[in-house]
Design a protein around this nucleic acid. Structure first.
Length: 558
DNA sequence: GGCCGAATAT
DNA sequence: AATATTCGGC
């Protein structure tokens, strides 16, 4: 018998005595953690092998209240295995690897929390909250025997608090919300926090992920019709979180996988607390991690392919990174050679279909068109002509890389380029250097990484259209006439490693600029000084240029 | 019959 | 608004 009335007695000092299953392949690390836990009066059982741990847990499910499991990317994936197989045990994952993917994978697989190593007392002391949370949130039928005393104990504690007036709440404790109580001192007032209390500061968001507050969209079910192209094919995906690390991924060769959202009805997860996170961008997480052996990638649709009789509608989530890839492909092909099949070919993204690309390309074009100067057709056609004339400029001359925040680990916002309506500033500002003018064209698309640079944000060649200013909206924004402002935007990008045009491309641009002097200069090219022009002209025997209207004299075709 | 792009649906 | 799907033309 694991938990008895005596246990309850002994738990006056809850959570002392809480039984922690510790799984860590590294004995040194395990010993260290164990020591810390025991210093807090937790009752620790150490395992170095997941099979042993699983076996111990399965033979005595009530012998443990919570698991602390190390996951290592370098060695085995035993941690994940344990996580997946000990569904009923609140499992906290720990790792030296702070890669967001690893974290998210853990959470997605059902971990209640992810703790970055090294583990401190601060991080460990509150792990009991998950036990309480489980005790109160698991359905009565799921509530394991070991949790019942926990629940009762806590109820008793709370009731005692309420009775003795320690708690401000006059009303009897709302046991539904009991998990909001924590020993953190930044308590919200009761009723404000509908989320389970996190056990540590770092996982407050993680805790929210486990909440089902975002499930509303999961209920629409539509008729099934799959694109024939990938009929029956399981698609592999990666989370958008990979974007944050993709650039530094140790396996750059691995084809990128599209993040695909489930739109299908998502029935309530029946296995107790193991509800998958309901991130708005990730509609479904794998229950079966075996479909993907890389800890850095998450396979999502495999199991749904297997287990769902009726096929689900899937949606590609065009993450900034994926979009970047798309743009790169478009640039590589040239704007007028970019057709879905070729783009798809270049992108090499698993699971992405030509339809997906076509759809995105359509949007890409539309938005690019909207980003271009003016709305009237003439300008649009002019612009297009200019594009076509110069499509050989396959790379933007002065484009800011649309996305290079691979060092950022901040989980929020995941999609900074996809600002919410009405929150453009906040969405965009993130990507803007602090010195940038905070101006955003009202119609601009949110993908622009920096204010006022949305054309190249879409990967368009930066050649200005004929008879049109490069950035016509400048005309409407007095501040942008400031040469300083223009300098900002025309200066070299802060990170232009992959956007340096090839020399031949530059040559072509220069040649074109020279051969068509009536066109505005491409970005990056400075007009010759008046002196040098006069000198050159006088060399050629031309003199007497009326300086008064030099503009018109050199702006007309010969 | 497949691909593309625009239109339309979700 | 974003993405998928449909449809007509090639």
């Amino acid at each position: 018998m694991v938990c008895t009335a005596n246990d309850l007695q002994g738990w006056k000092d809850f959570p002392k005595g809480l039984r922690v299953l510790l799984l860590d392949g590294d004995s040194g690390s395990a010993a260290e953690i164990r020591e810390q836990l025991e210093a807090m009066d937790y009752n620790v059982s150490t395992f170095y092998d997941e099979n042993e741990a699983l076996s111990a847990f399965s033979s005595s499910p009530e012998g443990f209240h919570v698991a602390l499991v190390e996951v290592s990317t370098s060695s085995s994936l035993g941690g994940f295995k344990f996580l997946e197989n000990a569904k009923d045990l609140p499992t906290i994952m720990t790792s030296n690897d702070q890669c967001l993917n690893t974290m998210m994978r853990c959470i997605a697989l059902g971990a209640v929390e992810f703790l970055c190593k090294p583990l401190s007392e601060d991080k460990l002391k509150n792990i009991w909250q998950h036990v309480v949370h489980k005790a109160f949130n698991a359905g009565a039928n799921v509530l394991s025997e070991s949790l019942k005393p926990v629940k009762e104990s806590v109820e008793s504690m709370l009731q005692h608090q309420a009775d003795s007036g320690q708690n401000k709440s006059v009303k009897p404790i709302d046991l539904e919300n009991v998990s909001r109580f924590s020993d953190n001192d930044n308590e919200q007032s009761p009723g404000c926090d509908k989320y389970p209390a996190p056990s540590t500061p770092q996982l407050k968001q993680g805790a929210r992920l486990l909440d089902d507050g975002d499930c509303h969209e999961q209920t629409n079910c539509s008729t099934e019709k799959e694109s024939g192209e990938h009929d029956g094919e399981c698609k592999s995906v990666e989370t958008s979180f990979d974007n944050l690390n993709a650039e530094s991924s140790p396996q750059p060769r691995e084809p990128e996988k599209a993040l695909i959202k489930e739109e299908e009805e998502f029935p309530n997860v029946s296995k107790g607390e193991r509800a998958v996170p309901q991130n708005p961008h990730i509609k479904k997480f794998p229950k079966n991690a075996d479909c993907n052996t890389s800890p850095d990638k998450m396979g999502v649709l495999h199991d749904s392919c297997e287990t769902k009789a009726n096929r689900k509608k899937i949606k590609v989530d065009w993450t900034p990174d994926l979009h970047k890839k798309f743009v790169k492909a478009v640039e590589q092909l040239g704007i007028d050679q970019a057709i879905p099949s070729r783009i798809l070919e270049i992108m090499k993204v698993d699971g992405l279909t030509r339809h997906n690309v076509a759809s995105h390309l359509q949007k890409y074009r539309v938005h690019r068109r909207q980003s271009l100067p003016g709305d009237d057709d003439q300008k649009w056609h002019n612009q297009r002509d200019a594009m076509q004339r110069s499509y050989h400029m396959q790379r933007p001359i002065m484009a800011y890389p649309p996305y290079h925040s691979n060092h950022t680990l901040s989980p929020a916002p995941i999609y900074p380029m996809w600002g919410q309506p009405g929150s453009q500033a906040s969405g965009v500002q993130i990507w803007a250097p602090p010195s940038y003018p905070l101006w955003h064209p009202p119609e601009s698309w949110h993908w622009q990484p920096y204010p006022g640079v949305h054309v190249d944000a879409w990967g368009c060649p930066m050649l200005p259209p004929p008879q049109a200013p490069c950035f016509p909206y400048n005309q409407n924004i007095p501040g942008l006439h400031n040469p300083k402002t223009v300098d900002y935007r025309f200066s070299m990008p802060r990170s232009s490693f992959e956007h340096h045009p090839a020399e031949e491309v530059v040559d072509k641009v220069v040649k074109e600029a020279m051969s068509k002097p009536w066109l505005p200069l491409p970005l990056g090219l400075k007009p010759p000084s008046m002196d040098s022009v006069l000198a050159e002209l006088s060399k050629q025997g031309i003199s007497g240029i009326p300086l008064g209207n030099k503009g018109s004299s050199i702006s007309k075709p010969c």
